[in-house]
């Protein structure tokens, strides 16, 4: 080809098969390495987010539990179902009435912690409320009592925190009602099929046993 009186003839050869194969191999190796690195980074970040979320949920549960136990008088039942808390002695008789009971329950199916309490209809008179506000005796299981009240439509349930896959309690005394301190083991979900166990210690400074 002539161009301004000068001739440039350039041989442009393609790549040989070996060069092409080497180039493809290098590209594949780099691509795979990058994919591996990026996947592990993404997994790490996702796991970090999951852990942060799990810790925040455990923190919420810790604060909610402490807010109840700081002023509670006793825990009248504590097992894998949750904590049945005698919150205050409104009647002044030293007995646990239905309205003085709070049940921090572990819902295994929904993987969440909820707080349940008895609440009678507002339309009821004071006499009707007082008549229904019966004493929970020491032989009764407070969780069963709560279920019975729920069947009657008198229980309000408030969700506390979700993403809880396990719950267990250890009491400081021979029984829950005698114990002023509890070690609550909670499994908080980080990712699907991956939980972290957290221990939340709670004490009852105002502890007293019901009559």
């Amino acid at each position: 080809m002539s161009c301004g009186g000068r001739t440039t003839r350039v041989q442009r050869r393609g790549m040989t098969t070996v060069e092409l194969l080497i180039a493809v191999t290098i590209t594949v190796v780099i691509g795979l390495s990058m994919t591996t690195v990026l996947t592990s980074v993404a997994r790490g970040l996702s796991s970090t987010n999951g852990e942060r979320s799990a810790m925040q949920r455990a923190n919420v549960l810790s604060h909610r539990m402490l807010s109840y136990t700081e002023t509670a008088l006793a825990v009248i039942a504590a097992d894998e179902r949750g904590l049945a808390i005698w919150l205050h002695d409104e009647s002044g008789e030293g007995k646990v009435n239905l309205l003085e009971l709070r049940a921090l329950c572990f819902d295994d199916d929904e993987q969440m912690m909820v707080m349940r309490r008895v609440e009678f209809p507002e339309a009821w008179t004071d006499e009707e409320q007082a008549a229904a506000n019966t004493v929970v005796t020491s032989v009764e299981d407070p969780f069963t009592v709560m279920d019975q009240q729920e069947a009657l439509g008198y229980v309000t349930t408030v969700p506390i925190v979700d993403g809880v896959s396990g719950f267990a309690v250890e009491s400081s005394g021979a029984s829950a009602v005698e114990s002023p301190r509890f070690a609550v083991h909670v499994d908080v979900v980080i990712e699907m099929d991956h939980s972290e166990e957290v221990l939340l210690a709670v004490g009852l400074p105002m502890h007293m046993e019901p009559q």
């Binding site: 925040q56 455990a58 301190r181 210690a201 709670v202």
Partner: peptide, 28 residues
């Protein structure tokens, strides 16, 4: 750095649980 910050934040949260727990127990 992001991982380190996340780990530090996690440790602080767990530390708060442990401190809250001990204080709550001591108050009994």
């Amino acid at each position: 750095t992001a991982q380190k910050v996340a780990w530090e934040s996690r440790k602080r949260m767990l530390a708060t649980f442990a401190a809250d727990g001990m204080l709550s127990e001591l108050m009994t």
